[in-house]
Design a protein around this nucleic acid. Structure first.
Length: 488
RNA sequence: GUCCCCUUCGUCUAGCCCGGUCCAGGACACCUCCCUUUCACGGAGGUAACACGGGUUCAAAUCCCGUAGGGGACGCCA
């Protein structure tokens, strides 16, 4: 009962041992949504106890990616709160205190088994078709035995004594009642010999110490939960409520990994996915608003979000649907913001954006955004607006060659008509086209396609009127001359 | 191998708790048509699923049992 009165506090607890992946981002998102919906607090905690693998660059990337997605935390790195520090390596004295307490309660013991011995035990159990686990060899070592091991140069780890007599049970907010037989767990390591805590111990302690009310995390932690519960119970600490979110799978139903393409948030950013689209898409992977809405703003999603509407079954990450959604966000984006966002992608595609009039860039973006599913594709559509990229593509060249005589007539006539203009608007364009129809034999598709081929070097693209009113007349003339020369 | 979790169109999902309104609804993808002297956008249709087997019931996607399949965990990683 009292859990409903306690303030809502959730956390995202990444370890800086790699970049933020799609799955981690989604877990963070669900925590964020729950916190914002409930008016609670979203805590970010850095689980950096694995010193060998943790790196500052990963931590920085994770923070950057979370911010990019729009998941601002209320407490954590760079955001001071009352439950810090928010780096586990800065909380060592806290863990030491609890470790000491467990030691005095005789709930822990030092284990001197070597990795080799543990592996042998594991293999043995596997062979006997049993769940591999630590069987408690060092559970009741005498002082003398310990001394002997120390003299052999072995360094101990601290294991937690698992009480095998009682079945562990908890209510998962997503999965319902979960029961685990402790006989399948085995005394697990909670700290290294030097006192550095391991995940199950540190996470359990921090969750209560930071007054976390709901732990929303990936399903891969479901089997860790009984261990954490055991630790909390031994210390007489209050356990949070748990919600284990199903994991995200690759299209072949295996775990999402590098071979399936982009997996980190940073990669999606580089491909030109908009954070709003990813936010929306990820929220729909394992959750739905209960009606048929799909394209929703973050405010809408926050308003509708509840844990009850989360799905139990794993979901496959479908880039195609994400791309569709991204296309919608691109089409609906504010044009000046979008143009701003798209500039780096244009630069990357080799266009000299800085030399162009910003108004022109906006116009180009406006004209071609309908074709884009992600910003990275801009180069394929914007090239026709940059003279330095002008080039006759094979199919366009073929069209012109196949109709050489008519084409020459059309293009020469067009060039003559253009003489009267130094800039063009829609009206001028229409006048020119009317005149053109009167002067040349060709009409219909042939007339238009020929102009398109010569003016853009391609057979497909935006509307001709858009192209002609966007490009400077000088460019149009230049292109016509180039093509005419090539044709003669 | 053992333990745990999961199972509705190819994919994301609604419906399942409280059986009939479901010969299962929406979305992506795919196909067709319309719009468009091109492409895209947009619009209108279409193909496509209750994993399987038993039971309970007048009636089961919905309840029960079993089987199969998939996933996760089994670390001095998190």
């Amino acid at each position: 009962m009292d859990q409903f009165q306690q303030p809502i506090r959730v956390r995202m607890a990444p370890s800086p041992t790699g970049f933020l992946h799609i799955g981690g981002a989604r877990t963070a998102l669900f925590n964020y949504l729950f916190a914002r919906h409930m008016g609670g607090t979203f805590v970010l905690r850095i689980e950096d106890t694995d010193r060998e693998r943790s790196e500052k660059k990963y931590e920085e990337a994770i923070l950057q990616d979370l911010r990019w997605l729009g998941l601002d935390w209320d407490e954590g790195p760079e955001r001071h709160g009352s439950y810090g520090p928010y780096y586990q390596t800065q909380r060592l004295s806290i863990y030491a205190g609890y470790l000491n307490q467990l030691h005095h309660q005789q709930k822990t013991y030092a284990c001197y088994c070597s990795p080799h011995e543990l592996e042998a035990e594991r293999q043995e159990l596997l062979k006997r078709k049993k769940t591999p686990r630590y069987m408690g060899k060092c559970r009741s070592l005498t002082d003398q035995e310990k001394k002997k091991f120390e003299q052999e140069g072995r360094s101990p780890v601290i294991r937690f004594k698992v009480d095998e007599s009682k079945v562990i049970e908890f209510d998962d907010l997503i999965r319902g009642k979960v029961q685990v037989d402790p006989k399948n767990i085995g005394d697990f390591v909670i700290a290294k010999g030097d006192g550095m805590p391991l995940y199950n111990f540190a996470a359990a302690i921090d969750d209560t110490e930071m007054k976390i009310s709901h732990v929303i995390r990936g399903e891969e932690h479901l089997s860790n939960t009984p261990r954490q519960l055991l630790i909390l119970k031994a210390l007489n600490l209050k356990a949070p409520l748990y919600a284990h979110v199903s994991i995200i799978l690759a299209p072949d139903r295996s775990k999402l990994s590098k071979r399936h393409g982009a997996t980190s948030l940073g990669e999606y950013q580089k491909l030109g996915y908009l954070p709003e689209a990813l936010f929306n898409y990820l929220a729909l992977l394992g959750w739905n608003p209960g009606d048929e809405r799909e394209v929703m703003t973050s405010a809408e999603i926050i308003r509708e979000f509840t844990i009850e509407k989360m799905t139990k079954s794993p979901a496959i990450f479908d880039v195609q649907k994400l791309s569709w959604m991204n296309g919608i966000y691109i089409r609906n984006a504010n044009i000046s913001e979008l143009s701003q966002n798209i500039k780096p992608f244009l630069e990357e595609a080799g266009f000299s954006v800085s030399e162009k009039d910003p108004v022109l860039i906006e116009k180009i973006v406006e004209g071609v955004r309908g074709n884009l599913e992600h910003l990275n594709q801009i180069g394929n559509y914007a090239d026709i607006f940059f003279d330095e990229k002008f080039k006759l593509e094979e199919d366009a060249k073929k069209h012109l060659k196949d109709n050489q005589e008519v084409a020459t007539e059309i293009l020469e006539a067009l060039l003559r008509l253009l003489e009267k203009y130094d800039h063009m608007d829609v009206k001028a364009y229409e006048t020119i086209q009317e005149e053109l129809k009167k002067t040349v034999k060709a009409k219909g598709k042939l007339l238009f396609l020929t102009q398109r081929a010569a003016l853009t070097g391609k057979l497909k693209g935006p509307e001709m009127v858009f192209i002609c009113t966007t490009l400077p007349v000088a460019s149009l003339k230049k292109r016509l001359q180039t093509v005419l020369t090539a044709l003669s």
